[in-house]
Amino acid sequence: MSVVETKVPAGFVPVYTRPKALSDKRFTYCPGCDHGIITRLVAEAIDELGIQERTVGVAPVGCAVFLYEFFRCDFAQAAHGRACAVATGIKRANPELIVFTYQGDGDLAAIGTAETVHAANRGENITVIFVNNQIYGMTGGQMAPTTLPGMRTTTTPEGRDLRSTGYPLKISEMLAQLDGPAYITRQAVFDVRHVQMARKAILRAFRNQLEGKGFSLVEIVASCPTNLRIPPAEGVRWVKEQALKYFPLGDLKVRE
């Protein structure tokens, strides 16, 4: 097997290159983590809409805590769960900016539930990327509100017991009941087809903001191979066979 080729011979033209909205910084995610794909899709949307110079991101606390290092756009680092409130402040202060948050399920659906629900209900004209991997990854694999029934985590060593810990929180379904949001959708990135669908959804969520349509949230069902203790490629099967049972994909609310 040859060593890694780095020179492109004459006659070859690029058909897929690294998004310009990404910085040169290596992602700090674990090998095979879906976060990397989702982060890249956000950058692709920013490139496609040509909004890098007016975009402000809001980084969460969690596995994407270093998000501001990965992008070539302005960024605020928010306290745990407060990203939607911080985004509200930025957007209200300067409505010309394109503001997005990027949050995990612990950040958005546990400690930040109130901020998320009320930003959605106000119809804040922001874009929310919600990565649901059913676990607290950064802190070492504790139960999240989205943890699946029976799923083993470091705080549910015998598997999540619904009688004492409740049910996987379906935050997108909750938000879709509100009148405020413009767009609530649930996507996944476990194969190319779904990556392409997620890409379209993220693009739409940003375009909605450009068009002043209001609150748009793209939930992406992901896996955390590291804390599930499975090889990265098996994360695909996890999402398809386990997570989608509780988090079915599709648009939950679309306001034209």
Binding site: A76, V86, G89, I90, K91, R92, A93, A114, V117, R122
Partner: peptide, 26 residues
């Protein structure tokens, strides 16, 4: 200007964080 009645004090101070980060007196 913009005045938002927030859902909580926690949200309000974090909205201030965003607005001040955007360079506006808040």
């Amino acid at each position: 200007g913009a005045c938002v009645q927030a859902e909580s004090e926690v949200a309000a101070i974090n909205m201030c964080y965003g607005a001040a980060a955007a360079g506006v007196r808040t």
